[in-house]
């Protein structure tokens, strides 16, 4: 990593720290509401069984982290390329265009990790899920967290560089809703075997591998996808989106 890239990271972290309270609100609010309704209210009403919260916890963590890294990369980029052109001052820094893009992905990963650190204890405590994390699970959790954040940071870059800035709101809605609902956040992938075509179709959704990865690491006793498929999916999609994102970024950055 070059000194210039570190300086770019320094700048982004300075700005992020300054906006920490908004960041916490953004990443914390939804999981908080979610855990309150699904982890506290609905079990009390007897509508869902207590065990369901165990199935939800990995999904909530997965959603928070992946959406965080995607937003951290996509939103500033859309604004920069579409309107303010602020990124120009970083494109003139003595670093390659890909260097600037990779730094953006790193920032996305960092933000997602912080989101994870906020959301995991929050959801854990509120839902009262019993987790027994040994060393293997913790290492798995870290690997899954980093890979998922990377995947969605790169995905955020692809979206931000492909979509016209005026359409970004629409795309976020149209893209994210199906991704979330078909993303195995609220049900384990393994249980989908009763609908085989659906089980196979959702494999196209990168979010599935993130959520199943967290399921693998946090609640291994529950049904989950095989580790090979999880890691293969996460790594494959990460590489694909990084390659595509860097190409599209360079296309947007240079006329």
């Amino acid at each position: 990593m070059t000194a210039t890239m570190l300086a770019l990271l320094h700048r982004d972290l300075r700005v992020a720290r300054r906006e920490l309270q908004y960041f916490l609100l953004r990443v914390g609010l939804q999981p908080l509401l979610f855990t309150f309704i699904f982890g506290f209210v609905m079990p009390r009403l007897g509508i869902i069984q207590r065990g369901y919260t165990e199935m939800l916890l990995p999904g909530i963590l997965g959603l928070s982290m992946t959406l965080s890294s995607m937003q951290a990369v996509a939103l500033p980029l859309v604004i920069d390329f579409g309107w303010t052109k602020e990124i120009e001052d970083r494109l003139l820094a003595p670093i390659s265009i890909s260097g600037v893009a990779i730094e953006k992905i790193l920032v996305g990963i960092l933000q997602a990790m912080i989101a994870g650190l906020v959301v995991l204890p929050l959801a854990w405590l509120l839902m009262g899920v019993h987790l027994s994390l040994g060393l293997v699970e913790i290492i798995q959790l870290l690997v899954v967290a980093i890979l998922s954040s990377w995947l969605f940071a790169a995905f955020g870059m692809v979206v931000a560089t492909i979509v016209e800035p005026q359409q970004i709101g629409l795309v976020f809605n149209v893209l994210l809703a199906p991704m979330i609902f078909f993303g195995c956040a609220y049900y384990p992938w393994a249980t989908l075997h009763v609908i085989p075509w659906f089980q196979r179709a959702v494999l196209l959704n990168p979010l599935v591998y993130a959520n199943e990865g967290f399921r693998l690491a946090l609640t291994p006793q529950m049904p989950h996808m095989s580790p090979w498929l999880v890691y293969g999916g996460l790594l494959g999609f990460s590489l694909l989106f990084t390659w595509l994102g860097l190409r599209k970024f360079a296309g947007r950055a240079v006329d």
Binding site: R18, T84, K85, L92
Partner: peptide, 14 residues
């Protein structure tokens, strides 16, 4: 090189 572009591309977060 040092570049003073035509547009205002100052970093508004700083």
């Amino acid at each position: 090189i040092g570049v003073v572009p035509q547009v205002n591309n100052l970093d508004r977060s700083l």
